[in-house]
Amino acid sequence: MSNVAEQVKKIVVEHLGVEADKVVESASFIDDLGADSLDTVELVMAFEEAFGVEIPDDAAETIQSVGDAVKFIESKQG
């Protein structure tokens, strides 16, 4: 797992209070990890803070899963 993926996973575990083994790449924040719409807003903010990237609202809407977040952040950092 990449550095970004590990850090994303850690943030998701912390914010959503879920078991680490459930936070797989394909896991959807809302459908699989019990987040609501406000939780996902807060998650995106946490990603911005942790990775020093800006995630515009239209991009944030496409980040639905752990994998989406990792991909987006890696593309910004790449």
């Binding site: 406000l38 807003v41 807060e42 903010m45 911005e48 803070e49």
Partner: peptide, 13 residues
């Protein structure tokens, strides 16, 4: 310190 974009959606509720 960090600006308005860091205000949590849970701040108000």
């Amino acid at each position: 310190q960090k600006g308005p974009r860091r205000v949590s959606p849970f701040f108000i509720p």
